[in-house]
Amino acid sequence: MQLPQLDLITSPDWSDYALLDSGNGQKLEQFGPYRLIRPEPEAIWLPSQSQKEWDLAHGIFVPTAEKNGGHWEFMKKIPDRWTMTYKNYSFWAQTTASKHLGVFPEQAAQWDWVYQKIKSSNHKTNVLNLFGYTGMASLSAAAAGAKVTHVDASKKVNLWGKENQNLSGISDTAIRWLVDDAFKFVKREIRRGSQYDGIILDPPKFGRGPKGEVWEFYKILPDLLDGCRQILSSKPQFIVLTAYAVKASALTLYYATEEMMKKHNGTTTAGEVVLTEKYGQRALAMAIYARWSSI
C-alpha cells in the first residue's frame, strides 16, 4: 500500500504582510504599517523575539466568551481600514468584530497556484469559488483570465470583495458576486446544467447561510463535493479544497478529493497551509488542504 505524501505550502512572496513571531498561544503579525497580536492555539512554544518587539503592537485581539470570540484592544490608534497589496492585487484590510482582517495571508500560496493553472490552460476557464469571503482567490482567477462565479452567504464580505476588485483594476464583468448558501447554489447549478472547469472551496467548520441555513463540515461536505462533481466540465482543470479549525486531517481531504475526481485523469496532493516566521525558524500550521489538477 502506497500512502500519499503530505506537503507544507508557504507564501513567501508577501511584502505587505509578515508573521513576525509566535508563541504563548499568540502570533505577532505585520499587516501593512500596523503590527497586531492575535490568538493562535497552535503556537504552544515560547516567542523567539523579545517582549520589546511585542510591545510595539498597535492592537491585540483578546479572547473572551463574547459572541465573536473576543474583542480588539488598541494601544495605538489605527484607521478603520487601510489598503494592502499582494503582487498585482490591492485590497482593504480592517479589524472586524472577530479576529479576522479580511485576508488570510497564508492563502496566497493557493491564489498563486490557481493563477498558474488558469494561465497554463489553452481555453477560457470557468471557475466557481464557494465560501469565497472577500474574494482574493476570485481576483487571482479573474486576473489570470478566468470567468469567475463567487459565492458567499455574507452580503457584507461580497461588497468588500467588489471593493477589492475595483482596487485591483479587474474588470467588473470578470466576476459574478452572489450572496447565497453554497450547497443550495450547487444544487441549483446541477438542475441548470451549469459546468465549471475549476472549483475552489474553503468551507467553514460551522456557519449559516443568508436565510439561516446551517452548515456543518462533516455532515454536509461529502454531499457538497458530490454536487460539485456533477457540475464539473468534461475536462476539468483543478479543484482546491481548504479547511480550517476542524479535526479532520489532510488525509481526510486527500481521500475525499480522490473520490470526487476518480473518473478524471489528474493528480491529487494534500498537506498543510503554513506561515513561516520572518525572524524565527518555525512554520505555523494554519489549515489543511487538498488540490487536484489535470495539468
Results as ranks from 00 to 15, higher is better:
residue 290 A to K: 05
residue 191 R to M: 15
residue 8 L to E: 12
residue 245 A to N: 15
residue 221 L to P: 00
residue 187 K to A: 07
residue 229 R to I: 01
residue 86 Y to E: 11
residue 53 E to F: 04
residue 139 L to G: 11
residue 55 D to G: 11
residue 273 V to W: 01
residue 247 K to V: 06
residue 56 L to K: 14
residue 44 I to F: 10
residue 238 F to H: 07
residue 30 Q to T: 03
residue 150 H to A: 05
residue 130 L to V: 08
residue 215 W to S: 09
residue 242 T to Y: 11
residue 135 G to H: 03
residue 191 R to I: 14
residue 282 R to A: 09
residue 293 S to F: 14
residue 240 V to R: 02
residue 258 E to T: 08
residue 20 L to W: 00
residue 11 S to T: 10
residue 86 Y to D: 12
residue 254 Y to M: 04
residue 100 H to E: 14
residue 112 D to V: 02
residue 103 V to W: 03
residue 96 T to S: 14
residue 28 L to A: 00
residue 273 V to D: 00
residue 207 G to H: 13
residue 215 W to M: 09
residue 215 W to E: 02
residue 82 W to D: 10
residue 128 L to T: 05
residue 164 N to V: 01
residue 132 G to F: 10
residue 66 E to A: 07
residue 189 E to Q: 13
residue 234 S to N: 12
residue 98 S to M: 06
residue 175 I to Y: 04
residue 42 E to A: 13
residue 114 V to W: 08
residue 225 L to D: 02
residue 260 M to G: 07
residue 60 I to S: 13
residue 27 K to P: 00
residue 118 I to F: 12
residue 178 L to K: 09
residue 126 N to H: 12
residue 192 R to G: 04
residue 258 E to G: 02
residue 235 K to C: 08
residue 259 E to W: 08
residue 252 T to G: 07
residue 163 E to H: 03
residue 257 T to H: 05
residue 96 T to M: 13
